[in-house]
Amino acid sequence: MSAYVFHVLIMVSIFAILSLSLNIIVGFAGLVSLGHAAFFGIGAYASGLMMIRGMGFVPALFLAGLCTAALGVALALPALRVKDDYLAIVTLGFGIIVVMVLMNLEVTGGPDGLVGIPPAALLGTPLYSKPGFLALTLGFLLVMILSVYALKQSRIGRAWAAIRDNDVTAMFMGINIYYYKMLAFIVSSFWAGLAGSLYAHYTAYINPQTFGMHTSIQILSMVVLGGIGSITGSLLGAALLVVLPEILRPLADYQDIFYGALLVTMMVFRPQGIMGRVKITEIFGKK
C-alpha cells in the first residue's frame, strides 16, 4: 500500500475517534456541541507544547487528554445550565474563543501555529513510519470503541439514554442529570484531546485554523451522517467524510456545499442516519 493510502487511513482513524467522542455528547446524552474541534485543538496544542519542552510521548498524550477533559469541565460548568439551542450557541462561542486565544497567545505561536512537534515515540523509539503510526491510532480507536461500547451498556449509558429521551422524566427518576451530562462532556473531551495529541504528533505542525468551526461542523456531520447514537455509524461517518473529499479532491471548492446539503437532507429525509435503528428513529422522529 502506498504512503498516501496509509495517510488517509490514519486520518480516518483520528476522525473516527473524534466523531465517536462527539457521539457521546450528541448521541448518548442528547446534548449538542458545535465547538468540538476546540477540544481536538486543545489536545493537539497541549501535547505539542509539552513534547517540545521535552516531555515523553506517552505522558504528554495522557496529560493532553486530561487537560482537555479539564477544559471540558470548564465549558460544561456554564454550558450545562442551558439546553438545546442555547447549548449550541455556548459551545459554538467556546469554539470561537478557543481559536481566538490560540491565535493571539505568544506561546502557541499565534496564527503561525506550532512548528517542529516531535513525533510519537513508544519505549524511546520514535514512530516515523506511517504503518507504525496507523497501528498506534487503530489501537487507540479499538480501545475507544470497546470502552464506549461498555459505557453505553452500563448504568451510565442507561442514565444518558434516559436524559436524552426526556431529561425532566430522568430527573424525576432520581438521575442526577447535571452529573451525567458533565460526565458526557468529560469523557468526550478526554478522547477528543487524545485525538488532538495523535494528530499533532502525526503532522508535526499545527495551526489554529485546523480547529475552527469548519472542523467542528465536519465532526458533527460525521455523527449525523452515520446515525446519531450509533457507534458503527460514527465510524462509518468518519470514514465516508474523510475518504469522499479525497476522492472528490478536484471538487474541493464545493466541499462545504456538500456538507451543508448533507446535513439538511439527512435531517429532512433520514434523521436517524445511515446506521440508525428503529429505536433511534422513534427518538428522533415525531415526538
Binding site: G30, A88, Y254, D256, Y259, L263, P271, K286
Partner: peptide, 23 residues
Amino acid sequence: THPLVPLISAIGASILLSSLARF
C-alpha cells in the same frame, strides 16, 4: 421532531448558503 433535528438542519442550511455564496 426532537429539537436536535431542526438545529442540525439549520446549521447545514447555514453552511450550504455561505458556500453557495462563495461559489
